[in-house]
Design a protein around this nucleic acid. Structure first.
Length: 851
RNA sequence: GCGAAGGUGGCGGAAUAGGCAGACGCGCUGGACUUAGGAUCCAGUGCCGCAAGGCGUGCGGGUUCGAGUCCCGCCCUUCGCACCA
């Protein structure tokens, strides 16, 4: 039976029209009943999207289609994280304005979504680089400023010469600029910061209630880096004491020197006159060193004695004060009490300079090592020794009792320190939201009044290598307070500010009086399911949480967390070729693993798709050849959504073949199914098997969508059902009611994955509504069980036979055991053996032990 | 160094309240239809063995009637953090 062949090109366009025209993906946010806020991380519009980007949105579209069929009112908006450096780089390279470049890319990407069969409520589209959005990003800045959460300070910052701007701490990854890979250099600049550290404890503790992958929570936990300890003051001869943070106050009696960061503010005062020159030199050297150099682990420790002393407040003894670049100015107080006997770094330092080592904690076995012999610091807690009044305190009480002692004496107190630093948001660029601040000689730092927002980006014809500061006329303004001459802040905000609140704007994207409507966001948020890449595990997600909490404290939102459930999808990898001479090559520049230009052998490796490695696959090619459904199906089938996967040309053909098989099967059956109505009755054994499989499949697919999102196994289950339906039909299975029911449910089950093909076959089946308006199929848990089960029988741990028994027998241990022992095959095996023990596991197996 | 995830056929991957290892797909082999096949369909496919059978989830031990799954000790890979006091 040959029908019309599957031709995606002939059917897909029609359904793109149909879905958009009928507005199936629009949502009325005024009706939050049965609401579900599904959100994909919005893309940065940098040219076209490749099949790796596609994975993120295809997962989302499949989930959203499922949810709609389950009757949810789904908010599934999309927008563009449209400010940022690549637009400026493109402007420089091609002489095109960043706005033009960005908007062109957006238009192209929108077509790509449409080609994939992904339809959004485009009336809610957000573009962060347009004034009606960044106006509210500026509003957000003013609110944070008004509540003391945005402040300006002069600080050592990471300046990226490649991007010609400063970077937030989080944007320096492995000592390199997250964007361009250049090693940032330290610079001292006046910059704006958001006080995210004020929320460190809440950002940490509220993680507990989030339905997020554990490893993402862990990453945030590590990034925040909470440690409990004590602040201890060491008196000095220059008036101000040196405050030190330590997690081991119980080792105070062993502190034989103080080590300050070279940048520590008291260094000048504490330097003996005769050592000044040397100290200056060391300091300059240390400050100039990049963070990578300074923090490289295996580097020998260096330092310098300042020539002055502090007093150990516990022993009363004078101890020397040193500076060393292993002490970070930004953590704790930028000064540490060095306890060589009980800290690995301090011991290394002490050994390098011949400094005294004093043991004040006994080893776990109770012994007290000889300080002169120690080659490794004794870092485990233990009984305190040689510690004055606290000598003999056991390890488990040591810290608490020491802190109590110090507090009693007024020389120390319990404290918590965080690794997290404040968020540096100033960027010396053009393509970002201008910071709405004015500097007036008379009034000082003046926020731009809300009603004067937005502070528009100057509309200059071409942007070369310049920031706002380089654009004539931008800075000149008048002071909003006194009307006098004033200058605007010429920095723009980090683009992570734009994306740290966009999920709020989607609920009421056209509101003109406010960034969002409190009442509405309170009904729709938190986001029920947020899906995106792990690469945002720290930056974007931490910032968004912080901003949400700040808005909560200010009374603008009634929830403390933006994203209740998070799912991180894996990246799509593909072979990348690198020629020793010509660098990364496109596959077409490689001929039998040799460079087409020079003939040298190329190195093949697998990386996440990226334009720079020339290993991307363009959806347009795939869609032209196989159609969008094939790309969608393969993308979701090739592996678990949360794991990285490797794109394979062979694999996609498997998906294509499957869809052809299914299409041919259904089209071939259509003539028999016309006009057939009603449920199947009185099934034969083959029919009952198919019926059972149908219900098991619906159950499996439903559970994956509603639960762990193992969409690859859901698709595998659907393939099994298609295979069984094919076998049933080929085997002469003739019940048209059953075939129709299975075909119908299969089309619906497949529709989140292959919406075009499903919609087409659905209508050919005679249905009038869209699959999207049709309820998701139900299953009968009773039907899943079937009537008989095959039970394996093990003899001495090996499967030697299988028995088919009715379900009631299989679920009764005694009956099951009887049935297994009675089976002929089992009897033959047991002949001449003594049965020692029989274990019958209902519904599972029978295990017989013989001698 | 610390933390997390992972290691299963030729390949992508299934299966964990301990219970038939390898679902589903790719590839491969054989066959059918073909002028042809990088199309389609049918059959086979963990490894060794003619077979009976044996061996198999990174390595070595252990618990159990039974271990990919649990316990102890290692090895390797990936990711995150890393002189954080």
């Amino acid at each position: 039976m040959r029908g019309e062949p599957y031709d995606p090109k002939a059917i897909e366009e029609r359904w793109r029209h149909y879905w958009r025209e009928r507005g199936y993906f629009r949502v009325d946010t005024a009706r939050p009943r049965n609401k579900f806020y599904y959100l994909n991380m919005f893309p940065y519009p940098s040219g076209y999207l490749h099949v790796g980007h596609g994975r993120n949105y295809i997962i989302g579209d499949a989930i959203v289609r499922f949810l709609k069929m389950r009757g949810y009112n789904v908010l599934n908006p999309m927008g563009w994280d449209a400010f940022g450096l690549p637009a400026e780089n493109a402007a420089i390279e091609r002489g095109i304005h960043p706005r033009q470049w960005t908007l062109d890319n957006i238009a192209y990407a929108k077509d790509q979504f449409r080609a994939w069969g992904i339809e959004y409520d485009w009336e809610r589209e957000i573009t962060t680089c347009l004034p009606d959005y960044y106006r509210w990003t500026q509003w957000l800045f003013l609110k944070l400023h008004g509540s003391g959460l945005a402040y300006k300070k002069r600080a050592m910052v990471n300046y990226c010469p490649g991007c010609r701007t400063v970077l937030a701490n989080e944007q320096v990854v492995g000592g390199e600029c997250e964007r361009c890979g250049t090693t940032p250099e330290p610079r001292e600049l006046d910059q704006w910061f958001f006080r995210i550290t004020a929320y460190a404890d809440r950002l940490l503790s509220d993680l507990a209630d989030l339905d997020w992958p554990e490893h993402v929570k862990k990453m945030q936990e590590n990034w925040i880096g909470r440690s409990e300890g004590a602040m201890i003051a060491f008196p000095t001869g220059v008036g101000s004491p040196i405050e030190v943070f330590t997690t081991r106050p119980d080792t105070l009696w062993g502190a034989t020197l103080l080590v300050l960061a070279p940048e520590h503010p008291l260094v000048d005062k504490l330097t003996a006159p005769e050592r000044r020159g040397e100290v200056e030199r060391y300091r300059k050297e240390a400050i100039r060193a990049t963070e990578v150099e300074r923090t490289s682990t295996e580097r020998p420790k260096t330092g310098l004695f300042l020539g002055s002393y502090a007093t150990n407040p516990a022993t009363g003894e004078p101890i020397p004060i040193w500076i060393a670049d292993y002490v970070m100015p930004t953590y704790g107080t930028g000064a540490v009490m060095a306890v060589p006997a009980h800290d690995a770094r301090d011991l290394q330092f002490a050994r390098a300079y011949g400094l005294p080592v004093r043991v004040v904690i006994a080893a776990p076995d109770g012994s007290i090592p000889d300080p002169g012999e120690m080659s490794e610091a004794l870092v485990e807690p233990g009984t305190m020794v040689g510690s004055g009044p606290l000598t003999g305190t056991p390890g488990e009480e040591a810290i608490a009792r020491t802190v109590a002692y110090l507090e009693g004496k007024g020389i120390g107190r319990r404290t918590v320190a965080y690794r997290l630093r404040d968020w540096l948001i100033s960027r010396q660029r053009y393509w970002g939201a201008p910071i709405p601040i004015v500097y007036c000689d008379r009034c000082g730092v003046v926020p731009v009044p809300e009603e004067e927002l937005p502070v528009l980006l100057p509309d200059v014809p071409f942007i070369g290598k310049m920031g706002l500061a380089d654009i004539p006329g931008f800075a000149e303004t008048t002071c909003p307070w006194c009307g006098g001459e004033a200058r605007r802040d010429t920095d723009t905000m980090d683009t992570f500010v734009d994306s740290s609140w966009y999920f709020l704007r989607f609920v009421s994207p056209h509101e003109e009086k406010a960034p969002f409507v409190t009442e509405d966001v309170n009904r729709w948020l938190p986001v029920d399911l947020y899906v995106g890449g792990v690469e945002h595990a720290i930056l974007h997600l931490l910032y968004s949480r912080f901003i949400t909490k700040a808005l909560y404290d200010l009374g603008y939102v009634g929830f403390r967390e933006p994203f209740q459930r998070l799912f991180t999808q894996g990246m799509v990898c593909h072979a990348a070729y690198r020629c020793p001479e010509h660098g990364w090559l496109y596959p077409k520049e490689v001929d039998s693993l040799r460079c087409a230009k020079c003939g040298q052998e190329v190195a093949t490796s697998y990386f996440a798709m990226s334009k720079s490695k020339k290993n991307v696959v363009e959806p347009a090619e795939i869609i032209a050849r196989y159609g969008a459904d094939t790309e969608r199906l393969y993308t979701l089938f090739m592996g678990p959504p949360d794991r990285d996967i490797e794109w394979s040309e062979d694999g996609i053909r498997g998906a294509w073949r499957f869809l052809n098989r299914f299409w041919n099967l259904v089209v071939g059956q259509l003539p028999r199914l016309a006009g057939v109505e009603g449920e199947p009755e009185r099934l034969d054994p083959a029919g009952r098997r198919l019926w059972r499989k149908l219900h098991a499949t619906v159950k499996k697919v439903t559970e994956e969508f509603a639960g762990e999102l193992g969409l690859n196994t859901a698709i595998a289950a659907i393939m099994e059902l298609v295979n069984e339906l094919g076998a049933y039909v080929d085997g002469g299975g003739a019940d048209p009611h059953l075939v129709r029911r299975v075909v119908r449910d299969l089309i619906l089950l497949l529709s989140p994955f292959t919406p075009f093909l499903s919609e087409e076959l659905w209508h050919r089946l005679g249905e009038k509504q869209s699959v999207l308006e049709t309820p998701w199929p139900d299953y009968d848990p009773g039907a899943v069980v079937g009537e008989e089960v095959e039970i394996p029988v093990q003899i001495n741990g090996k499967v030697r036979a299988r028995v088919c028994v009715p379900v009631p027998v299989a679920s009764d241990p005694h009956a099951l055991q009887e049935a297994a022992l009675a089976a002929g095959e089992v009897q033959a095996r047991l002949h001449g053996k003594e049965v020692v023990r029989v274990i019958a596991v209902p519904g599972k197996l029978v295990s017989i032990v013989v001698r």
